[in-house]
Write a protein that binds this DNA or RNA. Structure first.
Length: 197
DNA sequence: CATAGGATCGCCT
DNA sequence: GGCGATCCTATGT
């Protein structure tokens, strides 16, 4: 079952981030289908969260996507190299999002290995937000895509998330501070990161 | 216009 | 643990 608007438009982004663990992130790009189970996520709590791009109401051409309705893809370039994939949550004009940090590849392993090039290390684990996009073929041109509305042409690029009722061991789900947000002061300590070990 | 730095990664020591 | 890759964004002159 494909996750619909009701899942994404909830206003507690931390809860959505936790609920995304164990769900399956899927892409159909250039006719190639790949997917993986989400094993790590981070919540970015909008204008009140100093670690968020939308902190204090910041709004630019890039972050404008965060102000859209939940269920929209927000992809941006980090360090000039990596495309980082986020899921916009909550209602329009409440700019919250969840960063997908890691997946466990499920289908299309060969295509993922091809996308990763000769560097096969980490393919089985799909670790790191830059690698998630790399394996699934996601890039910054996909920012703004709807995760809930199917395109007119079935052959077109599509990104979505499925609930396959995969059973996860909640005893192995850790709630810890986020990574790489030291600049956010006290907000860097918030337990907004979820890791399935 | 110039410049610094970032929600990273992989390779080096 | 350190560093280079590489480019968009925000800020300052």
């Amino acid at each position: 079952m494909i996750l619909q608007k009701e899942f994404y438009t909830r206003q507690d982004v931390v809860q959505v981030a936790e609920d995304l663990i164990g769900k399956v992130l899927c892409t159909s790009i250039d006719g190639i289908f790949t997917c993986g189970m989400i094993t790590e996520s981070e919540a970015y709590a909008g204008i009140r969260d100093k670690a968020s791009h939308s902190w204090n109401g910041r709004r630019t051409a890039r972050t404008d996507i965060m102000y859209r309705i939940g269920g929209t893809a927000y992809v941006y370039l980090c360090y000039g190299i990596h495309s980082l994939f986020n899921v916009v949550t909550s209602v329009a004009d409440d700019p919250q999002a969840v960063l997908i940090r890691s997946i466990q590849p499920l289908e299309g392993i060969d295509d993922m290995a091809y996308r990763a090039g000769k560097n096969m290390k980490g393919i089985r684990e799909g670790r790191g937000p830059g690698n998630v996009s790399k394996l699934l073929g996601i890039n910054v041109s996909h920012t703004g895509l709807s995760l809930t509305d199917a395109p007119d042409d079935p052959a077109k690029t599509r990104i979505w998330i499925e609930d396959r009722k995969l059973q996860i061991n909640h005893k192995r789900l850790r709630t810890v501070p986020r990574i790489g947000v030291d600049y956010a002061g006290a907000d860097a300590m918030l337990p907004y990161r979820f890791v399935l070990e």
